[in-house]
Amino acid sequence: MLLGPSLVLSAILFSIGVAGVMLRRNAIILFMCVELMLNAVNLSFVALSTAHGFTGQVMVFFVMTVAAAEAAVGLAIILAIFRHTKSVDLKTMNLLQG
């Protein structure tokens, strides 16, 4: 059975995504790390659907929809920020800093 190894792989990929969010300042790479974490969660949904029925795969469909919407809006926000600061580095996004 591949259920156990799949969940381990999912945990590893999620942790790599968290480390990426912690280690980088490029907003686009940060977004890609978030996508990586969403993919890790999708993998655990699919793995558990082998034991629990097909509801997990329906949830993966919804996660993909929300991820696509999030990517579209997030990249539009990055585009708008780039027009202001000429950079996508999180260090330059300090307008609200006291």
């Binding site: 969940l7 381990v8 945990a11 590893i12 999620f14 942790s15 968290v18 480390a19 912690m22």
Partner: peptide, 14 residues
């Protein structure tokens, strides 16, 4: 800190 946090999350998920 990032590596430790990632390792901690992986351990919790395991």
């Amino acid at each position: 800190v990032a590596v430790l946090l990632a390792a901690g999350i992986a351990a919790a998920l395991f």
